[in-house]
């Protein structure tokens, strides 16, 4: 299995991209994984590695990338907005298309990543399938969730909220508020899967939406992406990962 790590984009705004090649074949199918926000990104990193590895065994090239102001990508969390996440996602999709002729490009987005994936899918006909994994359906629900997770003591005078050690800027909150994956228009050929570990306002909203060719699968137990301890425990929800991989 070959892995490539690279920065794409201009030097002042480079985006970290990891490509895991399909096992044993020259693949024409690819999947892009969309990370969640902040602490959830750290907590999901190993699960995404596992998911990527399993997808390569099914013949897919798998791409993971860091949004601006997160992980290894350029920028500071306090200066990035949701639009920057979308721009970086489009940059990655453009990079894939320019590097290799894929017959299909799928997207899997976890939590906030599901909102990012769906939003870029509405702008890109090249995406054929979107998996919404424990999604956050809209910007308001993201802000609501962030309020529940935030540490008021760490808000400071900057307008940034501290979410388990990750700043959520006022700029980001303002920017994300109007986004709602259930009100977007999608190309007809796209397929959506909702794979969730629990019922909540976001999943209810997605189920009521008119997303094209939507399939729904509930895979308990609930994944708690925001649990934090001092032992460095991480979440490895094998059952839901297997369910996602089985869709491919």
């Amino acid at each position: 299995m070959t892995t490539n790590h690279l920065f794409i984009g201009p030097p002042s705004a480079q985006v970290f991209l990891c490509r895991l090649e399909a096992k044993n074949i020259n693949s024409t199918k690819s999947v892009i994984l969309f990370y969640p926000f902040g602490q959830e990104y750290m907590r999901a990193h190993k699960a995404f590695k596992q998911l990527a590895s399993l997808l390569t065994r099914k013949g897919y090239d798998v791409y993971r990338f860091d949004y601006p102001g997160t992980g290894d990508s350029c920028g500071d969390e306090t200066n990035t907005s949701f639009c920057d996440y979308l721009s970086a996602s489009n940059l990655v999709i453009g990079h894939l298309s320019s590097q290799q002729q894929y017959s299909s490009i799928s997207a899997i987005g976890l939590r906030l990543g599901a909102l990012v994936a769906a939003t870029v899918a509405s702008q890109n006909k090249s995406l054929s399938r979107v998996v919404l994994w424990d999604p956050i359906a809209d910007g308001e629900l993201f802000i609501q969730d962030s309020i529940e997770q935030s540490d008021l003591k760490d808000h400071g005078s900057t307008g940034n909220w501290g979410i388990h050690g990750f700043p959520l800027s006022q700029k980001f909150r303002q920017d994300i508020a109007p986004y709602d994956l259930t009100t977007l228009s999608f190309p007809e050929h796209q397929e959506f899967s909702l794979i969730h570990s629990c019922e909540n306002m976001s999943t209810e909203k997605v189920k009521r939406s008119e997303l094209p060719k939507l399939s729904v699968t509930l895979v308990p137990p609930e994944n708690d992406w925001n649990y934090v301890d001092m032992e460095g425990s991480i979440l490895m929800p094998s059952t839901i990962i297997k369910t996602i991989v089985d869709r491919f």
């Binding site: 190993k46 137990p221 032992e231």
Partner: peptide
Amino acid sequence: TQNKASPQMEVQAW
């Protein structure tokens, strides 16, 4: 709690 009981948790053994 779900966290402590969940088989999905990969707990670090130090």
